[in-house]
C-alpha cells in the first residue's frame, strides 16, 4: 500500500426540507445525505462506493470535491486541507487542487456542452489552468483522444455526433486533461450498453494501472465494483455500513445489509445454488431516518438493541470496518449464518 491520497474525516452534509409555500415555510426535517463519513483512499487505489438510490453516494462524491459544501468535517488531499485551501488558500494551491481532483458524471448526454467541439471541450482545462504551453495543446488533445480510444479526426466533431459510450470517453478525456491524481467517477457506465460498458470499464482499469490515477468509483452495479476496485464502502441512508478490501467484503460480508445486497445479484451460472436474503420493504426515506441502526426495520436479524443503539463503525478485522452490533456472528467458519425469521 502506498501513501494516503485522500482522507475524509467525519464529513456531514444534511439538506434541510421545508413545507411548501413561501409564507409560513417551516422546516420539517433534514435529509441525512452524508452522515459522519470517514474514509481513506490510498495512492493508485480505487475505492468503490455502493448503495441504493438515495443513500447519499453521489452527494458524498460531490462533497469530497467541494462541488457541494459540507456542513462539517474535513477532506485532505495529500495532507492538504481541501476546504480550507479552496476557501482562503493561495491561488496556486487552489489551482493545484482543482487540477488534481476531477469528476466524471453519470450522464454523458448532460455533461458535455452541445455547442462545443470535442477539441474545445478537452482543451478548455488548458485555457483555465495554463499548465501546458500553448503550442503543445493540439498534440495533447490528440494524445488524450487516442488514450481513451478515439481518433484524431473526432476532435472537430460535436457531442451529438457520438454514441453514449464515445461521449463517456470524451468526458474521461476531459477529466484527464488536467493530469489529475484523483477522479470521482459517478456511475460512469450505468447508462451504457453491456458490450460498451466493458470497454469503458477496461479503460478505467488501464488508467489506474498505467497513470496511477485513483478513482472513487460510485456505482450500484456491484459486479463492476468487484472488477475494478481494491477497497469498497457500502452506504445506507448516509452512513458507511461496511468498509474494507473489496475481495474480502465480497467473499465474507459482515454487515447484514451487505450480505443481503450481495445475495440479491443474479450470477450468470445456472448451476449455482441461490441462497438469497430478500429484504422486506423499501429503502426508508433519508429524511429523519429510523432510530438506532438505520437498517433495523428491514434487517432479518434485528434485535431490541438495534432499535435503540446506533452501531459504531468499528474495525472487526485489520482494515475491515463494520457498523453492526453483531458483525462477529456473520464470520464464516465459526457457525452458519443465523437463521432468518420471516
Amino acid at each position: 500500500m502506498g501513501k494516503t491520497l485522500i482522507e475524509v474525516v467525519n464529513l456531514v452534509k444534511y439538506f434541510a426540507v421545508y413545507t411548501r409555500g413561501i409564507l409560513l415555510r417551516r422546516k420539517i426535517g433534514d435529509v441525512h445525505a452524508v452522515d459522519d463519513v470517514s474514509l481513506k483512499i490510498e495512492e493508485g487505489e480505487n475505492l468503490g462506493l455502493v448503495g441504493e438510490t438515495g443513500c447519499g453516494k453521489t452527494t458524498l462524491g460531490k462533497t469530497i470535491l467541494n462541488l457541494i459544501e459540507p456542513d462539517s468535517g474535513k477532506v485532505y488531499f495529500e495532507g492538504l486541507d481541501v476546504y480550507e485551501t479552496l476557501r482562503s488558500g493561495p491561488e496556486e494551491k487552489k489551482k493545484y487542487l482543482r487540477r488534481s481532483m476531477q469528476m466524471i458524471f453519470q450522464n454523458p448526454y448532460g455533461s458535455l456542452d452541445p455547442r462545443m467541439t470535442v477539441y474545445d471541450i478537452i482543451s478548455e482545462p488548458f485555457v483555465i489552468h495554463r499548465h501546458i504551453p500553448r503550442d503543445e495543446w493540439e498534440e495533447r488533445v490528440y494524445s488524450l483522444l487516442r488514450l481513451v480510444g478515439l481518433e484524431d479526426y473526432h476532435a472537430e466533431r460535436y457531442p451529438h455526433e457520438f454514441s453514449g459510450g464515445q461521449r463517456q470517453r470524451i468526458s474521461i478525456a476531459r477529466a484527464l486533461a488536467t493530469d489529475p491524481k484523483f477522479i470521482v467517477a459517478d456511475e460512469p457506465v450505468s447508462s451504457l450498453d453491456v458490450s460498451v460498458r466493458a470497454q469503458v470499464l477496461t479503460l478505467l482499469e488501464n488508467l489506474q494501472k498505467e497513470k496511477k490515477i485513483s478513482f472513487l468509483y460510485i456505482s450500484h452495479d456491484l459486479s463492476s465494483v468487484r472488477q475494478i476496485t481494491q477497497s469498497v464502502a457500502v452506504m445506507y441512508l448516509g452512513k458507511i455500513f461496511e468498509y474494507g478490501p473489496t475481495d474480502e467484503i465480497f467473499e465474507e460480508p459482515l454487515n447484514p445489509y451487505t450480505i443481503a445486497l450481495l445475495s440479491a445479484i443474479p450470477v450468470p451460472d445456472p448451476e449455482r445454488k441461490i441462497n438469497r436474503i430478500v429484504l422486506p420493504g423499501d429503502v426508508p426515506s433519508p429524511i429523519n431516518p429510523p432510530s438506532g441502526c438505520r437498517f433495523h426495520p428491514r434487517c432479518p436479524w434485528a434485535t431490541e438493541k438495534c432499535k435503540k443503539e446506533e452501531p459504531e463503525l468499528r474495525e472487526v478485522r485489520k482494515g475491515h470496518f463494520v457498523a453492526c452490533h453483531y458483525a462477529e456472528n456473520f464470520m464464516k467458519g465459526e457457525k452458519p449464518l443465523p437463521t432468518v425469521q420471516q
Binding site: L201, L222, R226, I228, F250, P268, R272
Partner: peptide, 11 residues
C-alpha cells in the same frame, strides 16, 4: 464482457 459478482476476472 460482463463483470461477475462472485469473482474478479479479465474483462
Amino acid at each position: 464482457a460482463v463483470p461477475r459478482i462472485d469473482r474478479r476476472k479479465e474483462l
